[in-house]
Amino acid sequence: MTDAHEIRHEIRIATGDDIVRIRRAVRTVACAARMSLVDRTKLVTAASELARNVIGHGGGGTVRIERLISPSGVSGVRMVFEDAGPGIPDVRLALTDGWSTGQGLGLGLPGARRLVDEFDLQTVVGEGTRVTVTKWTR
């Protein structure tokens, strides 16, 4: 059995180029976790949405992408997006479809949440936001 964290990427999120780089890294890790094409597409799309949020709302940040293996042997991918931006004053509102403070469609957070299995959002106003998402291989 291989180490649960054999694949791990840490990528800075500042520009549009970084979003493309993140999509590639997530695809590689999802392939290593033997995810189906549909699940891989969902995960990469979620990563793209969350990375865009980090740039648009958090003023840039980082993402950590890692392969997981659960105690029962199930493979998965976890992504942790962090920024030191203004934080989210009303999390419930931010997770509502169509609500946006930026120019987007307001689908970023709620949309990404639907595309993954586990979604956790920690935010402190004035300090930053951390979004952790996990998708398991079926």
Partner: peptide, 14 residues
């Protein structure tokens, strides 16, 4: 459009 892209777009809400 690839089937996986269509499935993902609908789930995304677009």
């Amino acid at each position: 459009m690839r089937p996986a892209v269509a499935i993902t777009l609908v789930e995304l809400g677009l």
